[in-house]
Amino acid sequence: MSGNDLLFAVVPYVVLALAIIVTIVRFRQAQFTVSSLSSQLLESKKLYWGSISFHWGLSLVLVGHLLALLVPSGFELWNGAPLRLYLLEFTGVALGLWAAAGLIVLVIRRSTEPRVRRVTTPMDTVVMAIIGVQIFTGLWTAIAHRWGSFWGTEVMVPYVRSLLRFSPEPGFIDPLPFMVKVHVLAFFAFLAVFPFTRLVHIITLPLQYLTRPWQKVVSVRDEPPAEYVTRDKNARGVS
C-alpha cells in the first residue's frame, strides 16, 4: 500500500468513524459540553465583522461543494457556456475570500482581546489552523488550478463517491497538484478533530425551531430524568 493509498483510502474511513462515534458518545455522555461557546458577550464589535462573514462564507461554499457531489451533471450543464462558468467560479472565489476575511478578523480578535483570550482553548487554535489551511488551499486551487467546478466533477466527485460506496479509488487523487491534495487532507483533519472541539456545534444548527410551537411546557409526568427510567417493561408503571 502506497502512502497515497493510506492517506486517501484508509484515513478517510478512520476519521469518519472517529467523527461519528465520538460525536454520538459526546452527545450521550457529556452533552453539557456541546455549545457554540459564543464569546459575543465579551466582545461584539470585531465579532460582528468576523463571525457573520466567516460563517456565511463557509456555509455557502460548503453548500456548493455538497451540490457538486449530489448533482455533478447539473454543474456540467451549467458550465456548458463559458460565461456561466466564470460566474460560478467568481462567486466561489468571492465567498472564499469573504470567509477568509472573516477568519482573519476572528484570529486577530482571539489574539488581541484579553477577554476573548481567556476563553480560548488550545483546541480553538487547532480548529482555526485547520480551517485556515482549508480556506487557503481552496482559494489557491480556485486561482492556480482554475475551473475546479469543471474538472472537479470528473475527478473529485468520482473519488468522494467511491469512498461513499466503500470501494475507494485513491487513484483519482494521485495526479492532482499538491495544494489540492492538502485541501482534501485538511478536510480529513477537520473530521478528525470535529468531535473533540467546538466544531460539534455545526450539527446543532436549530432547524427544528422553524416548526416547533413557541411555548414549551414540560411536566415531570411527561418526561422523567433519563437515568430514572427503567427499560424493564415488567417494572411498575412503565409503559
Binding site: 436549530p206 425551531y209 416547533r212 411555548q215 414549551k216 414540560v218 415531570v220 411527561d222
Partner: peptide, 19 residues
C-alpha cells in the same frame, strides 16, 4: 406564563415546568 425566553430559544432548551 408566556415567556419570551422560551419562545426565543432556537434549541428548545428552555421550558416551563407544568406543575
Amino acid at each position: 406564563l408566556n415567556p419570551a425566553c422560551v419562545a426565543a430559544c432556537p434549541s428548545g432548551a428552555i421550558y416551563k415546568r407544568g406543575e
